[in-house]
Design a protein around this nucleic acid. Structure first.
Lengths: 349, 349
DNA sequence: TTGTACGCGTTATCAT
DNA sequence: ATGATAACGCGTACAA
């Protein structure tokens, strides 16, 4: 048990009676090193089980090849899929991913950013928390000239790139779909309007109603969170009204699920009496006996594109940060919960 | 735009005409520093927007406060939940989590381990891939005296701690439950037996049959993967037999779901004609109109415990690694898919 | 209480 | 083609 200590290039250099510099060069495929020594070094390095200390290398070079990702929660299908996308795009470039959760708290978010910056990460990907209002912590990132890419949930900060869904369009498409199914009294279960994504979905909904000359009824808009119960409660609210809705467009899948469960409890038939559309294409939406129409956000793709934006940004190692805004198209996956003309089912994947 | 460069303790020391050492001590709350200078340093540090370079600190101290987690895929409810558990337990201790995916390839796994070791992580958490057979890469970790903790999927390596589910017991409980529901012809959709977890579930199944004096029928065991289709196919196979099963115990939820879909397509009633039990408590199992009985593995808890095992290991900075094996009890969540005596529903959460 | 000097493991610059 | 040396930013033993 003598070899507790890690072996360094010095150990190799001593063994071979050459300088550490030569070892370093040999290991890095420096063309000025003779083939002989290169191979010799490589061989003994393997023998001695040498592993480069990327810490020292990073300190020297000023970059760690680590990037940070901050999400509200990691164990949500959407976020973990985005992360997977980022990881798959960045791993081939030698990057590693450090994951942080904000737990939807702006405070945590700021702390995580500080921690990431102090570990000298080369970039930050982030989806802001619901409670984030101030941009102080974002400014810190920019001050350090650390590339920052928002995905899905962004806030507007000059100089920050973002990859988001076209939520306005998504809201429009969802609502339009319901209208085309013959619905006229369309309720909307909205998320917290402080988040751009929910605001945009809401506005898309409004716009579609307008375009199709359907009166907007404020009472038809209920704010929900991403819990099933809030969807149930929303139905309870809506069914107190004189004019019951004939469709539900929910800005989230969990609320949509809750709504469906409550509708079923009330013996209201979906989609015959009420059509339901959710949002996010959570896995469960398609596995249900009565699959829920939902909006796909191609999260893995979103992650990959975010990663590409980041890579572009570091390639051109310009001091000033480039701002790139990518907007992805949403895709409505029409399933039974909103499909009255069953034989027209355009998709059910 | 002059301040491209990060500010160091030297910058602070110059500004205050004191030595960098004093600054360092002040920042680290060294008791030998006067309160005055401590506050002065703290104040100007904040003013100058100083952030400690944890890279340099890590190089100096020999520890990075980063740990690595290797999972087959990150966007699986089970794994992302375990990661969340690890993260929640370790963040308060100042650790950060680096995530890697093996994509179920032993080769990737070995690469990821090398990469992690070279970044000098302080520990590794891992759930081995399906294809992992050799333990060479594991040995490397041990050689470097880096704490290693397996979770869920482990392989037996002396000196490595692990936190796993009692899969044998889980298999037993699931099968016993089906027997108590009156089933006698119980089929088993098994995972790849090369993985301990699936082997144990299988053996638990066998043991339960034996204890209840039910003949084991080899044809009732079908190997599936974690895709829905394989569950459908399994039903197709089973229904070619003369004696059709009256129950399905699936080692995975996706296969169980596929089985249920295929049963429904065949107009076979669940649970009246066939009872179904899945495994993992994937979110969708409880959201279905006909919720699926499933085995909960308390993944977040598993992550937390794995983290605690790691913390213990680093606390006692003993050179020799301690081996600690934690086995968690499974919890069967009985839902409609296997509940013939509906009023006895012990749970449906 | 504070300053000086060194080392962590690498790479880059300047010699040779 | 190879060697000597400085530097990255920090913490600490030793000195004062």
């Amino acid at each position: 048990m003598k070899s507790k200590d890690k072996v360094t290039i010095y150990d190799i250099s001593k063994r071979l009676n050459i300088s550490a510099a030569t070892v370093s060069r040999a290991l890095n495929h420096n063309p000025k090193i003779s083939e002989k020594t290169r191979e010799l070094v490589a061989k003994t390095a393997k023998e001695m089980n040498y592993k480069q200390n990327r810490l020292a290398q990073a300190l020297k070079q000023g970059r760690t090849n680590n990037v940070g990702v901050i999400v509200p929660y990691i164990n949500r299908s959407f976020f973990s899929s985005v992360i997977r996308g980022i990881e798959e795009e960045l791993t081939p470039h030698g990057y590693h991913i450090i994951i942080c959760q904000s737990h939807e708290e702006a405070e945590n978010e700021a702390e995580q950013i500080n921690a990431l910056l102090s570990t000298q990460i080369d970039g930050i990907f982030m989806s802001v928390s619901k409670t984030t209002q101030k941009t102080d912590h974002i400014q810190k990132v920019l001050q350090e000239h650390t590339p920052l890419v928002f995905f899905d949930r962004k806030i507007d900060v000059p100089g920050v790139s973002s990859v988001v869904l076209d939520d306005f369009r998504a809201g429009y498409i969802a609502t339009e779909h319901l209208i085309k199914e013959g619905c006229r009294k369309i309720a909307h279960l909205s998320g917290d309007i402080n988040l751009e994504i929910y605001k945009n979905r809401y506005e898309g909904y409004i716009k579609a109603l307008k375009d199709y000359h359907i009166d907007f009824i404020p009472n038809y808009v209920i704010e929900v969170n991403s819990k099933i119960e809030s969807g149930m409660q929303a139905i309870n609210e809506l069914w107190k009204l004189n004019e019951k809705p004939d469709a539900i467009f929910s800005a989230g899948d969990y609320a949509a699920l809750g709504a469906m469960q409550e509708l079923r409890a009330r013996k209201i038939k979906v989609p015959e009496e009420v059509c339901v559309v959710g949002f996010s294409n959570e896995p469960f939406t398609k596995y249900m006996e009565l699959p829920i129409t939902s909006m796909d956000q191609t999260p893995q793709e979103m992650g990959k594109i975010a990663a590409q934006v980041f890579l572009e940004q570091v390639k051109k190692n310009s001091t000033l940060s480039i701002e790139k805004k990518v907007v992805l198209p949403p895709e409505l996956l029409i399933r039974e919960s909103s499909s009255r003309k069953i034989h027209n089912l355009s998709d059910a994947s």
